[in-house]
């Protein structure tokens, strides 16, 4: 018999979903946004010999991805502790 879904479970899941949505929004903004589609808007901002968009496409997006994954892992592991979840 599958376990009944409690309010607590729903709370855990909605926190998880919110985190995922935030992470993926930033993920899309730095790569598809700054690095690609929005690049023409920021041609005036220079980083070294290139514009902001070029730098994000070749370096900045990777640094951001890394920060996102580390943040998500840390936050979710903490959430698991708060809800007393182990697998």
């Amino acid at each position: 018999m599958p376990k009944e879904i409690t309010e607590r479970d729903q709370q855990y899941w909605s926190t998880n979903l919110r985190l995922i949505i935030i992470c993926l929004a930033i993920w899309a903004f730095v790569s598809y946004g700054l690095g690609l589609l929005l690049r023409p808007l920021f041609m005036g901002i220079h980083i070294g010999g290139a514009d902001l968009g070029f730098w994000f496409a070749q370096q900045g997006s990777i640094f951001t991805f890394l920060a996102l994954i580390v943040f998500y892992a840390w936050r979710m592991n903490k959430l698991d502790d708060e809800f007393g979840l182990e697998d």
């Binding site: 997006s61 994954i69 998500y72």
Partner: peptide, 8 residues
Amino acid sequence: GGYVLLAT
């Protein structure tokens, strides 16, 4: 970037 999808 695929790793962000994978991890989340």
